[in-house]
Design a protein around this nucleic acid. Structure first.
Lengths: 208, 208
DNA sequence: AAATATAGACAGTGACACTATCGATAGTTA
DNA sequence: TAACTATCGATAGTGTCACTGTCTATATTT
């Protein structure tokens, strides 16, 4: 497969493919001469994955590079889940200061009986949100934590079940990445839908 | 309160405040003379809200403007939930074509007995993710839909319960915005934590 | 009166994700 | 085999976003 065909069947412009090559998001191509290379379906798949992560998952190109690199590393199966952990949109290196948020999240962790390492990126992210709730004078929103946590367990169990179906290690990594990154968007969408339904139920139940 | 004080006690630079004023993200200030104005705690609160939505929620300035405008409009209480609906990161005007994703999401809607309008943004977002799953050859991930939907209901019920606590209509709008936008991040964080815990449980239960 | 601050206008910056152009080959077609 | 098209790699340019800096004319403070 030549560059122009790769472009055509992936729907990504030649210029963009070159850009992704420069950014090392694509695997090496088989060289047939110093200025010619042959591409295959792996490249097509990779391009589609990149576009999904960027367009649907909202990741930056830099984050996609990290996530793909992690997914390719030979990670022990029991920690495959960590692969996509760092693909969190608002995830900045936050010092593990003891803020109110950290305390609340640690309390949730304890109450749920979870085993979570201190550097789990979700922990920092959740703590940051709690800190924002408090700073914005919406402390009453802390009351959502138990139900959110229970729902998170349901989702996480389902996530684990879907990776258990995978035949190969590589496939597991990809499933984790896709399922985690795009899963965030999927859940957000379903939540919006469920919100609308609940609003109808609670505020306009008259028409029954 | 003068500009410099507003800057100081909100933690936002004067230049940035001016930028937000240009972008019409801040309410008008009380003018004391043609080139002097007085700010109050509303401005401080608004600035904090903007920063939380941008930094923690990952919204763009343009989206924040839309969300704030919607939150200020006089929306009937039973539809306050719609206010923050459009604050979805990857939310692009997608034509309501009948894709596989739309079909799957409609099936979920039916099975859950939800009442969801056709233009609910979550519907488009969820459908887009499903389409990506299919295109990426991860059709097996469709199996997560029932559990995700059930979890979404738990979260949505909790969301509605927390807005029911609010004393005023304005406060309701703000709670919906904050709870929905930041809630997405909070849930994503909790999900990562629950994933790690489940991984430990399923793959390393030996150390008991 | 001098020093500092403010409003408003507008230009500039740096990061990001491409996009365009170029020169040196290489393959393809007439 | 000559003309034409495509490719590679490098480099430069574009448009958007979210600020940031500078400037002028006032206004306030000391």
């Amino acid at each position: 497969m030549k560059m122009s065909e790769l472009s055509e069947c992936s729907g990504v412009s030649v210029a963009s493919i070159k850009f992704y090559q420069r950014e090392e998001l694509l695997p090496e191509a088989e060289r047939t001469s110093p200025n010619q290379a042959r591409y295959d379906s792996n490249h097509v798949d990779r391009l589609r994955l990149i576009r999904a992560l960027v367009d649907v998952g909202g990741l930056s190109v830099a984050t996609v590079r990290e996530v793909l690199a992690a997914a390719e590393a030979d990670i022990p199966l029991d920690w495959a889940m960590g692969v996509a952990q760092h693909a969190i949109p608002g995830s900045v290196e936050l010092p593990v200061e003891s803020t109110r948020g950290v305390a609340e999240i640690d309390r949730v962790t304890e109450e749920m009986g979870w085993t979570v390492s201190a550097d789990n990126p979700g922990r920092g992210m959740a703590a940051r949100v709690i800190d924002s709730y408090v700073q914005l004078d919406h402390e009453e929103l802390l009351s959502v934590l138990p139900a959110y946590s229970a729902a998170a367990v349901m989702v996480a169990r389902t996530d684990l079940a879907s990776i258990a179906l995978q035949p190969s290690r590589l496939r597991v990594s990809e499933t984790v990445v896709v399922g985690t990154v795009l899963g965030d968007s999927l859940f957000a969408g379903l939540r919006r839908m469920a919100q609308e339904d609940e609003a109808h139920r609670q505020y306009a139940p008259v028409q029954a």
